[in-house]
């Protein structure tokens, strides 16, 4: 974690400087946006889950997306990455329009995401999880796969790169283990490392800290900062305000599907609109957005369906009410 020690990392300084003059208002123009979103709307029946007028994400910066539960953050993520389709709106990544582009093509263009409920591929080894991330593998073509000679060399290169990343994320000791045997925090690390195998320009992290034990939090934070030093852009959803304050250069606040505020972490957390959004109408004035994690733990903890990792059947909880612990042992 080299980024951890360098408190005055160059990339951070550059990001802070670039954002210094950006007006603190929803939809503010950024000097060098990598992602520009315009009028994206997603309705579920009568409910408008997402209604984002205009948002820009600064290249090379770490941007946090916060907001109370049900604000539409994950839905917004799904829309941007092609996992859900908006009812209207358009957005562009690196100047290329992304609306209507399938999820896997979004990833190939350099925008890779992780999931709130970690999606480790349980019955694949850790190293296979990593290898899977590499793009442009010749052996992933059906016919070429039948002739090992055609892909053996590339496989070695991919493995080499995967091993480097595993070492960086301190997962090299687990190389041959099934991903399902890792702890929750290790899975988060693995998912992030795997996303890096894609060589993304922009990484979208959906609640990277949810369910991670405090000992691992610092290491994860360090890795996220490290991404910025490597020239990547990071957009992440998070409820932990300490983390948001610690690592983000810019914060976008969503409430009821709309962007309600933008600014640096400290400014945003003092913003009355943000406090209102978090605490509802009748709060007693205490600026304590951290109150949310109470609701937050109820959210991600319940659906921690261990093996599936996705809210599969309606009874994921009923048949397997215990969280992922068992697989972690």
């Amino acid at each position: 974690m080299p980024a951890d020690q360098q408190t005055d990392a160059p990339a951070k300084a550059r990001a802070v400087a670039a954002l210094a003059d950006v007006p603190r208002e929803p939809g503010a123009k950024k000097p060098d946006p990598i992602l520009v979103v315009d009028k994206v709307v997603r309705r579920f029946g009568g409910l408008t889950a997402v209604n984002v007028g205009h948002v820009e994400i600064q290249r090379g910066a770490i941007t946090a997306l916060i907001g109370p539960n049900g604000a539409g953050k994950t839905t917004f993520f799904n829309l941007l990455t092609g996992f859900d389709k908006p009812d209207e709106g358009n957005w562009a990544f690196n100047g290329q329009p992304l609306q209507g582009v399938a999820a896997h093509k979004v990833a190939r263009r350099g925008m890779v995401r992780t999931f709130q409920l970690t999606k480790s591929l349980n019955r694949l080894s850790v190293i296979d999880n990593m290898r899977l991330g590499a793009t442009g593998q010749r052996g992933e073509n059906f016919w070429r796969a039948l002739i090992p000679g055609l892909w053996k060399k590339q496989e070695q290169d991919v493995t080499e790169r995967a091993d480097e990343l595993l070492a960086r994320f301190k997962l090299d000791a687990k190389r041959e283990d099934f991903a399902g045997s890792l702890s929750g925090g290790q899975r988060k690390l693995l998912e992030m490392a795997r996303a890096l195998m894609v060589n993304p320009e922009m990484v979208m992290l959906d609640e990277p800290m949810a369910g991670v034990n405090p000992a691992l939090t610092q290491s994860l934070l360090g890795h996220v900062k490290g991404l910025r030093e490597l020239g990547m852009t990071v957009l992440f959803v998070e409820h932990d305000m300490d983390m948001v304050r610690d690592i983000s250069d810019w914060v976008i606040v969503m409430g009821q599907g709309e962007v309600i505020a933008e600014g640096t972490p400290d400014e945003v957390m003092a913003d009355q609109r943000v406090i209102d959004a978090y605490l509802g109408a009748h709060h007693d004035g205490a600026a304590d957005p951290d109150a949310d994690p109470a609701a937050d733990t109820a959210g991600p903890a319940a659906p921690a369906a261990p093996a599936a990792g996705e809210p599969a059947g309606p009874t994921a909880g009923a048949t397997a009410p215990k969280p992922a612990k068992e697989d972690g042992q």
């Binding site: 319940a302 994921a316 909880g317 009923a318 009410p321």
Partner: peptide, 11 residues
């Protein structure tokens, strides 16, 4: 309620 969300219903 159980059909919609068993975990929440149980809770």
């Amino acid at each position: 309620a159980v059909s919609t969300n068993p975990a929440l219903a149980a809770a």
